[in-house]
Amino acid sequence: MTPQAWTLARALRLAILSVGALVFLAPYVWMLSTAMKPREEIFSSSLTLIPERLAVVENFSKAFTRVPMLQLLMNGVIVCTIILVVQVLVALPCAYALAKLRFPGARTLIAAIMLGLLVPIHATALPIYVALSGAGVLNTYFALAAPFMISVFAIFLFLQFFRAMPDDLINAARLDGMSELGIVLRVIVPNAWPAITAFSIFSVVAHWNDLFWPQIVVTETAMAPPPLGLIFFRAAEAGDDYGALMAATVVVTVPLLAAFLLAQRRFIEGITLTGLKG
């Protein structure tokens, strides 16, 4: 950056962006601050960001002991993994078929997918709940994952991405002797990493943070994913112990943050991989 670049307009731009960043970061900063404060400081009349007495060990040990925190995190990981893996396994071949194969009804199916995008989970929650309840599978990982296993959003996202892939690439693979499944595995997937990673971020963030569906199908702490665990924690154990609650919130947020940072690197790698044409 050259010194001349520090014009007034630039400074103003930066100031606006900084204020924006602060507004969005503030809750997280406050969460971290509260997680480190002892109880009496949280309820003191003065607002302080830096605690006078650190209560880190106290708060975090409460977060880990009063609810089965590791169990909650594990539940979150298992449910998100099941959902993501099944979503990708279903959506990749679906999107490939819709994007690159010609068959009767393809257009109708794509229209159906567009319609599917418009239907929120809240509209279908009740019938799905009744079905799961009737099958006697409430309070299981399956109940948590089932409604999300087929993602029209994933199919739509991959469909758009695959459409941009040159047809000749797939024709070349056919001439080289690959089956259609082989093409998906050996040609499409290795070149679809940016799309798969982008979708993974959406999917994991959405289902790790999801509170609505777990609240409907899970009543036991042992099966609860992290956000529901936090609710249980607040309701039953913590009462007004906001320090411990915020510590638990930090614990729940950190894995997502770590996963996102890791995925980001992969995401950029993926983008540099796609030298498809040029």
Binding site: L169, N171, R174, L175, N191
Partner: peptide
Amino acid sequence: MRPSERDIAMVFQSYALYPH
């Protein structure tokens, strides 16, 4: 016959190399 059974090789205008 399917393309793979024909024992024919093709060079495409866009080359169609596997980018990965």
